[in-house]
C-alpha cells in the first residue's frame, strides 16, 4: 500500500501529511506533526493516555487510522492553552494535584474537556463515568475529581 496525502487541522492549524492510510493517528501526531503531548500507554484503547478530540469527539488516537481524521479538526493537549493562558482545566489539574507523573494527564484533561462540554456542572457520578476510559495509576483519581469540580466552578 502506498502513502497518501491527508489533510486535517490540528489545534486549528491546517496540516498536510504523507502517511499510510492505516497509520495510527497517534503516530502521525507525534512523529509527523511533531506534537508529543499525546502519549501512548497501552496501544489497545484501554488506558486513554492517547485521547484526543476529533471534531469534538473523544477518541483513543492509538485506535484511529489517520485516514479517518482526514478533513477533521483534531484537538490535542497542545491546543488547549491560548496565548500562554492555561485552560481552566489545566489550571485546576496543576493546582489541585490532578497531575502526578503526568503521563495520563494530557488524555485525562481532554476527557475532562468533553465531560464539561456535555455536563457543565457534572455530578460526582457523571465525573466518574466520564473519566472511566482514562486510567491513572498515581492519584487514585480523587484529586482528578477535585480538579474537574474546581474547573466546573471556575
Amino acid at each position: 500500500m502506498a502513502k497518501i496525502t491527508i489533510e486535517f487541522r490540528v489545534n486549528g492549524t491546517p496540516h498536510q501529511v504523507q502517511a499510510f492510510p492505516m497509520e495510527r493517528l497517534l503516530d502521525v501526531l507525534r512523529e509527523k506533526v511533531g506534537l508529543t503531548g499525546t502519549k501512548e500507554g497501552c496501544g489497545e484503547g484501554e488506558c486513554g493516555a492517547c485521547s484526543v478530540l476529533v471534531d469534538g469527539e473523544l477518541v483513543n488516537s492509538c485506535l484511529v487510522p489517520v485516514l479517518q481524521a482526514a478533513g477533521c479538526d483534531v484537538l490535542t493537549i497542545e491546543g488547549l492553552a491560548s496565548n500562554g493562558n492555561l485552560h481552566r482545566l489545566q489550571e485546576a489539574f496543576a493546582l489541585a494535584g490532578g497531575a502526578q507523573c503526568g503521563i495520563c494527564t494530557p488524555g485525562m484533561i481532554l476527557a475532562s474537556c468533553q465531560l464539561l462540554d456535555r455536563f457543565p456542572q457534572p455530578t460526582d457520578e457523571q465525573i466518574r463515568e466520564g473519566l472511566a476510559g482514562n486510567l491513572c495509576r498515581c492519584t487514585g483519581y480523587q484529586k482528578i475529581f477535585d480538579a474537574v469540580r474546581q474547573a466546573s466552578q471556575a
Binding site: 508529543t36 503531548g37 499525546t38 493537549i77 503526568g102
Partner: peptide, 13 residues
C-alpha cells in the same frame, strides 16, 4: 506542573 498539564514535558519517547 505546568509542563505536565500543557504536554510540554519530555518523556524519553
Amino acid at each position: 506542573g505546568r509542563e505536565k498539564v500543557t504536554g510540554e514535558s519530555k518523556y524519553v519517547d
